[in-house]
């Protein structure tokens, strides 16, 4: 087992001509960590991941992946990482066996070792269909699990998953995240991007990207505490929003932020005293209860803060 961080990124920038896709980003990821990349489409997540997989060479700054740098053009890095891109990674018009054979061939794996790895991974993902099954005939969730198996067939140290669960049924998403946790238990480092907040909650740490820059980094708890140091209340107007009450609440001392959350409103305060003061004597049509801020609340606040 190697020591040192799995990823060590310092002032990394990636430019395409005049366009800066990744702008002066620094972070490090420990071995065995689940590290989440979040951000809107076009925020630079995929570019950052493709670079760390050895597909792009940094324009400036440095990145060490498993202790390896880009002096060989990324070839060494490619050997120790597994990459599952957000597009198709399996061939629909090939069988399961043919797909995995091709993946093994791309990695120059000996056939016997490849077959052994295949059996291990089938056990891990609970795949028990025949090898001659056409990939096109598999359900979406199974296809993604198989794509994961194909991406880690060569037993990489660091695994990059770019939106692995988009378009997959919720039950299958939960199964997939179980697999991700199993991988880290086996000592692998997993870097994952997602648009689902419930998945982001399961990451050890999250990096939030916006317009190529890293605007927040930390565990879900840390991010929540950083964005909302005080308590938060959820207000339920039971269908009829009391506009006057909302206007008056906006002026309450110690209110940090008041924003709609689905059918309800969330009000964040500086401290418990401010919350109590503002929410005593609520009209009977409004009920309130204390809530934990969701990651979505956190990201909205951080991104608004970054844009201001």
């Amino acid at each position: 087992m190697k020591t040192g961080p799995a990823l060590e990124v310092k002032n990394l920038s990636i430019k395409f001509g005049d366009f800066t896709a990744v702008d002066d980003v620094s972070f490090s990821v420990a071995r065995g960590e689940i590290f989440g990349f979040l951000g809107a489409n076009g925020a630079g997540k995929t570019t950052a991941i493709r670079t760390l997989c050895g597909l792009l060479v940094p324009s400036s700054g440095s990145a060490l992946v498993g202790g390896l740098d880009f002096s060989d053009g990324g070839k060494g890095i490619k050997k120790i990482v597994g990459y599952m891109s957000q597009k198709f990674t399996l061939y629909n018009d090939l069988t399961v066996g043919e797909n995995l054979d091709f993946a093994a061939g791309l990695r120059k794996m000996e056939p016997r070792y490849a077959a052994e790895r295949r059996r291990e991974l089938f056990e891990l993902i609970g795949f028990d269909r025949p090898l001659s099954t056409m990939v096109a005939s598999l359900p979406g969730g199974v296809k993604q699990e198989l794509a994961l198996a194909s991406a880690i067939l060569h037993d990489p140290e660091v695994v990059f998953l770019d939106e692995p669960t988009s378009g997959v049924a919720p039950a299958s998403r939960a199964r997939f995240w179980n697999l991700i946790r199993k991988l880290t238990e086996m000592g692998k480092t997993v870097i994952v991007t997602t648009h689902y907040m419930d998945e982001a909650e399961q990451c050890g740490r999250i990096a939030l990207m916006s317009a190529g820059r890293l605007i927040a980094l930390g565990s879900p708890e840390e991010l929540k505490r950083g964005a909302f140091p005080g308590p938060m209340a959820e207000l339920d107007f039971k269908g009829t929003e009391d506009v006057e009450f909302i206007r008056s609440l906006e002026k309450a001392p110690g209110l940090l932020e008041l924003f709609p959350h689905g059918m309800r409103w969330h009000a964040a305060f500086r401290d418990q005293a401010a919350l109590s003061a503002a929410l005593t004597g609520l009209p009977p049509s409004v009920s309130s209860r204390p809530v934990e801020p969701s990651l979505e609340d956190v990201f909205i606040r951080i991104i608004e803060g970054a844009e201001r």
Binding site: G54, V81, S85, K87, F88, T89, Y91, A103, L106, R107
Partner: peptide
Amino acid sequence: EMGTFETIVSAPL
């Protein structure tokens, strides 16, 4: 077009 090319270029070839 399908994106499978990404998998090929991500291998150390």
